[in-house]
Structures are given as structure tokens and as C-alpha cells.
Amino acid sequence: MSDAGVIAKVPVLDVRGLTRRYLLGDVAIDALRGVDLALAEGEFVVLLGPSGSGKSTLLNIVGGLDAPDGGEVRYRGAPLDFDDARALTAYRRDHVGFVFQFYNLMPSLTARENVALVTDIAEDPMEPEEALALVGLGARLDHFPSQLSGGEQQRVAIARAVARRPDVLLCDEPTGALDCATGRVVLDVLARVNRELGSTTAVITHNAVIAGMADRVIRFVDGRVVGDARNEVPVPVSELRW
């Protein structure tokens, strides 16, 4: 993990007064009720909270997938323009890496090709092989998703997310569909990527155990940040149990 003392003056992501309301039928749900948050360069942050607490909504908005109703998101000081679909696409393409609970790999492409999908359109990416080696899949390059286990598929998804050397790596329940042992392997990979590439990493989970490995833990309840604590001594991934 990066040293908590080396926080850059301008945060990588700066969120101010973010609100988001969904209409579910006739019922309005306030997913975000005014969230302020700043993620610093190279931080490994865990966003912890029960389901429906708004953490995914936040991640989607800072990742440029969804637009807020109020408030502002700044990326390296510049506000994201949520009305400009092209600018959001470019933002995702150039700066953000996503990892999802259900991997979202292209079934028709091999591991290498799933990574190449991103490296084809990125500036100065890693080689797909290098990215897959980073997640420990150097030997499974030419396997299709249907030939890989869940953990392996998730690692391919991570390789795909990191191959473009993203400034921000956003992971939504990356271990949610995996058993404990496999989940640890995946988390270990995320920690390594954070360490070796210096990508600011945000991991969403409702699993409090995982919070132990983070530099910083932000707690969500009912669309609000209810806690923001720094882990002075992060727990090594190998010692996590759930």
C-alpha cells in the first residue's frame, strides 16, 4: 500500500455535495444525499456499507457511467461534464478501469483478446500478456471465458482494467461472486496492481473483513458517508478470513 503521508495536493477524485435520486415506480429513493469525498493519488480505499447504501451509485458516478442530480465531481481538479457523453467516454477510455462482480468478459474472446480489447483503444497500454502475467494468468492466455474458473475470469477482468494503466481503478464487489480462497487471490492481485502501478483504487464491498487491507475505509449508510478512517496498519491479504 502507498504511504499515507504522500498525499498529493490536488486529489485525483474530488466529490462535493453529490446527490442522486431514483424513482422506483412511484417511490423516490435517495441513493446519495450529499456526499463529500476526496481520493488521493495512489490510495487504496474500501467503500463499506450495506446494500442499498449508495456506494455503487457513487462509484458509477465517479466512473462516468451515471450522472448526479446535484453536486460536482472533479477529476484532477477539472469538473466532469455529465452532459457531454463523448467527454465521459473519453474519460473512461483514458483514465478509468472497472472491475465488476460478474466480470463482464466477452465470451467470444480469449483472455488475451479480452485484454486486447482495451489495449487496442488505449494510449500507452501494457501488452495484454504483461497485464495477464501481473494477475498471475500468464499461462492461460488463449483460454475462453467458458474455459476459466470464476476467480480466473475475475483476474482477466482485472488485467483488462489495469492494462491501460488507469489513474483510477474502480471495483464493484469484485469478490462478491467468489469463495473466500479465490476472493483472496483476487484481492491480492488488486493490492499488487495498486502497489506496482500506483492506480488510485476504490473497492466496494459489504464485507467488513476486506476493509482491513485498505489504506482508508469509508463507511456508507443511507446515501451518506458516516465514517472515514485511515488504517494505520493494513492487514496483509493472506490474513483476511471470511
Binding site: 466477452m106 465470451p107 467470444s108 474472446l109 480469449t110 483478446e113 486486447a116 480489447l117 487496442d120 475462453f144 471465458p145 467458458s146
Partner: peptide, 29 residues
């Protein structure tokens, strides 16, 4: 169950190196 894919016959013939990733998706579909 997730659909199973394999390299298309064009690729098995060695043409794949010339094909962009997106083209491979199309061919395999």
C-alpha cells in the same frame, strides 16, 4: 449456460494475427 466459443476457422488457418479484436468477436459470433 454461457455460450462456448472457439477460434474461428479463419483464425485456425492463421489469419487471426491480421484481424483486430473486434473483427474476431464478429467472426466468432
Amino acid at each position: 449456460p454461457p455460450p462456448r466459443f472457439r477460434p474461428s476457422w479463419l483464425e485456425r488457418m492463421g489469419v487471426h494475427r491480421m484481424l483486430p479484436t473486434v473483427a474476431r468477436m464478429v467472426l466468432r459470433e
